[in-house]
């Protein structure tokens, strides 16, 4: 029923980094103290929190779906990983280059830490994509 994905240890390491980051982001955004939001109750912060909620919902879905695709439908894992990597890069570009004048994250050290760790998560996802796309095909 379940396939054994023959990937390197570096892949599992990258995957664990990506999962840790996603869980940390979920925890951080779901436990933001209310006084912080009331303190920064601007339109920009409200829009950012709205956008972050939608993104976190997609992340939660991806966290559940990824192991299923990796172990059950390994053939499609590379497409799913590439799509997730493209999305991670797209939202990073969006936040820093496209929507920089529109969105503003609440003043919190934990949020700043999570934001600064985003490139590491993108690098992990990139490695996972590269490994799945360029891995040698198994010969029967």
């Amino acid at each position: 029923m379940f396939e054994n994905p023959q990937v390197s240890k570096l892949f599992w390491f990258s995957m664990s980094i990506a999962y840790s980051f996603c869980f940390s982001a979920l925890y951080t955004y779901s436990t933001i103290p209310e006084y912080l939001l009331e303190l920064d109750n601007t339109i920009q912060v409200n829009l950012t929190m709205k956008l972050a909620t939608v993104r976190l919902a997609i992340i939660a879905l991806a966290l559940v779906a990824y192991p299923i695709i990796l172990f059950r439908f390994f053939k499609y894992a590379k497409y799913f990983t590439v799509a997730l990597t493209a999305w991670a890069v797209a939202i990073y570009i969006d936040d820093y280059f496209v929507l920089s004048e529109i969105i503003k994250y609440p003043e919190s050290q934990l949020i700043s830490l999570i934001q600064s760790l985003r490139p590491i998560m993108i690098a992990s996802l990139l490695w996972m994509s590269v490994e799945l796309v360029f891995r040698p095909m198994a010969v029967d």
Binding site: V82, W87, I91, D94, L99, I103, V133
Partner: peptide, 22 residues
Amino acid sequence: FKYVCLIMLVYMLNSAIDNAVL
């Protein structure tokens, strides 16, 4: 082709979500 197409698809979906939310 499939990868570039997938990247474009994700980009368009993301921008559609951004526009709808913001």
